[in-house]
Design a protein around this nucleic acid. Structure first.
Length: 665
DNA sequence: ATGTAAATAAACAACC
DNA sequence: GGGTTGTTTATTTACA
């Protein structure tokens, strides 16, 4: 599977070959790489399409940052004002073009990301409109030229006639495409912004998108490729996609659905983007209707009243699978951003932890805007959206049969090849407490086919520590994975193997012979040993945040929270490990995970968090992990970090509430 | 450039 | 014999 060929269409990053792993794990995705480039018949591969979308999103992101920095609103979308999001000074100081993907994702706070998301959509709409118009003009021009030529050269009348016909068809197609595309984008905007009315099932997004794509997206920012270039393929993409999107049963989605009766308070979110597509005045009650004419791109049909307009919409702008495909693509973009937001909030947590802020503190702070949660919210409430779109599994156990795994245009392979799976160490890198992350987004991970940003080891450990007696059989661990993460409901062979591999490989996992078999426990000491706490977390970023933007950019409440939160951290239950010096427990920085939490939480009476193998008597294998004796020293040096470690009270409760929940299936 | 950690794949053995 | 469990080795990738 060392497919270098995959790179041919994946122009962005070297990591794109990453797709290999995912490819191998998803057989159906094979062969996708082949025809990804623009084909002669005008078709464009999913990869291109996705890439385009990403570029658009990124472009929008840059523009967003630019606006934030300069205070200027883009001429096109004055709704951006409404996005009124406070951007840290440090961000504002930066020239958007200079912002690397990493920085972008690290700098933006959840609210900012959300605003960014909205603006991205608005801008995308605008860009598409402009683009379509240009395309139309071009086509007209070409057509006229051809006609002139035709007039001049009667001899080739026939031939030219054909050409003309082709152009006309192309023109028509273009119009259709733009109409449908924009409709979908509009709808998509409604969906994402109006959970109560048009929320779409997150599942669809997740199915079509993998977390890794998000990273790719951000990476693309750095590349700063020309959007217009990609735009050229746009129209063609649409046609290509149309054939495959049938699974969504787009037919069900009638244009009327787009009417926005914004019944709820979410209005603030949705208003901006929609208006951007049409003109700023939101005279009509329909985003596609204004000034007595249909605002559908390239249409401008006159409609005296709303009813007529609706009729017009239904007749002239009916939805087909093509537009649905586009909608899907846009959903993916949105989802990518949402995932990104989730990651951002996660990083924020880590940063807060690093800055001696209680992990629970930031919760109320960013929770409302936490996209991950909003995403899940959407998902849950989103049954109203296009019925054709697959609904999220009602039960956690419901197998996800993502379209991506099917032969759909946007195949998993292509998607994965773009970014590849997020392989690892996110948690380590950002010192993200699993517990806190899961606490906030457990619903998200439960239903979204998103790879959790934790290592297998940390997840396994979490699972085990979460168990009442801190021991689980292999099968129970499996069940925990599938129960907690939608992502682990597929490719079972792969991740189960990984789980077993981790259990065997890492010393921290101790197999204990039980009466009825064997169970796995966690040797907390070993676990902490094997991960020397190093506050990495993107050093540059951290520096940026601390020095560059510093606390000054944090709002007052935040600072206050930071200040006071640093105090009460040391009052955690004693985490004395029976087997080894109890101090070890105190030392770990909760680097990636749950550790800090679970121990305290699940120590329902029964004390010692890190179960020493001896406790379980029976036969215990002593694994020989690459010995790292120096770890102890390092951990000592980490002493100052203790305050950080002890703190995840908030997480616990979430995890606990999660526990009683549905049992394994 | 190099080493390390993690993910992934796969071979293999023991056991039920 | 097939599936599960567990161990081990190898490869690839990301990251420091």
């Amino acid at each position: 599977m060392m497919v270098e060929s995959a790179t041919e269409t994946i122009r962005t990053t070297p990591s794109s070959q990453n797709g290999v792993s995912s490819l191998s794990s998803q057989p159906d995705s094979g062969g996708r790489e082949g025809g990804s480039s623009v084909e002669a018949n005008g078709e464009v591969s999913p990869v291109d399409l996705l890439h385009l979308q990403q570029q658009q999103a990124l472009q929008a992101a840059r523009q967003f940052l630019l606006q934030q920095a300069t205070g200027l609103n883009s001429p096109s979308s004055n709704e951006n004002k409404q996005a009124a999001v406070q951007v840290p000074v440090s961000v504002a100081m930066m020239t958007p073009q200079m912002i690397t993907p990493q920085q972008m994702q690290q700098i933006l706070s959840p609210p900012q990301l959300q605003a960014l998301l909205q603006q991205q959509q608005a801008l995308m709409l605008q860009q598409l409109q402009e683009y379509y118009k240009k395309q139309q003009e071009q086509l007209h021009l070409q057509l006229l030229t051809q006609q002139q030529q035709q007039a001049g050269k009667q001899a080739k009348e026939q031939q030219l006639g054909n050409k003309q016909l082709a152009f006309q068809q192309q023109l028509i197609q273009m119009q259709q495409l733009q109409q449908q595309h924009l409709l979908n984008l509009q709808r998509q905007g409604l969906v994402s912004l109006q959970p109560s009315q048009g929320a779409m099932p997150m599942q669809t997004l997740q199915q079509a998108m993998c977390p890794s794509d998000l990273q790719q997206l951000w990476k693309d920012v750095a590349n700063a490729q020309n959007v217009d270039e990609n735009m050229k393929h746009e129209g063609l993409d649409l046609t290509t996609n149309s054939s495959n999107s049938t699974s969504y049963s787009a037919s069900k989605v009638s244009p009327q659905i787009t009417h926005h009766s914004l019944p709820n308070g979410q209005s603030s979110l949705h208003t901006p983007k929609r208006e951007s597509s049409s003109h700023e005045e939101h005279t009509a009650s329909h985003p596609l209707y204004g000034h007595g004419e249909c605002k559908w791109p390239g249409c401008e049909a006159l409609c005296e009243d709303m009813g007529q307009f609706i009729k017009h919409l239904n007749s002239e702008h009916a939805l087909d699978d093509r537009s649905t495909a586009q909608c899907r693509v846009q959903m993916q973009v949105v989802q990518q951003l949402e995932i990104q937001l989730a990651k951002e909030s996660e990083r924020l947590q880590a940063m807060m932890t690093h800055l001696h802020m209680r992990p629970t503190e930031p919760k109320p702070f960013n929770q409302p805007l936490n996209l991950a949660s909003s995403a899940s919210l959407l998902k849950r409430e989103g049954d109203t959206f296009p019925e054709g779109l697959p609904h999220p599994p009602t039960s956690a156990t419901a197998p996800i049969t993502p379209l991506r795994q099917g032969p759909s245009v946007i195949s998993s392979s292509s998607l994965h090849s773009v970014g590849g799976p997020i392989r690892r160490r996110n948690s380590d890198k950002f010192c993200t407490p699993i517990a806190s992350e899961l606490a906030q987004n457990h619903e998200f991970y439960k239903n979204a086919d998103v790879r959790p940003p934790f290592t297998y080891a940390s997840l396994i450990r979490h699972a085990i520590l979460e168990a009442p007696d801190r021991q689980l059989t292999l099968n129970e661990i499996y069940n925990w994975f599938t129960r907690m993460f939608a992502y682990f409901r597929r490719n079972t062979a792969t991740w189960k193997n990984a789980v077993r591999h981790n259990l065997s490989l890492h010393k921290c996992f101790v197999r204990v012979e039980n009466v009825k078999g064997a169970v796995w426990t966690v040797d907390e000491v070993e676990y902490q040993k094997r991960r020397p706490p190093k506050m990495t977390g993107s050093p540059t970023l951290v520096k940026n945040m601390i020095s560059g933007l510093g606390y000054g950019s944090l709002n007052a409440s935040y600072q206050a929270a930071l200040a006071e939160s640093s105090l009460p951290l040391l009052n955690s239950p004693t985490l004395v490990n029976a087997s080894t010096g109890g101090s070890m427990n105190m030392l770990h920085i909760g680097h990636d995970d749950v550790s800090s939490t679970v121990e305290q939480i699940h120590s329902n009476g029964s004390s010692s968090p890190g179960l020493s193998p001896q406790q379980y008597g029976h036969q215990v294998h002593v694994k020989e992990e690459p010995a790292e004796m120096e770890e102890d020293k390092r951990s000592v040096s980490l002493m100052p970090a203790v305050s950080q470690t002890l703190v995840m009270p908030g997480d616990d409760r979430v995890m606990e509430e999660e526990l009683p929940g549905e049992e394994l299936e």
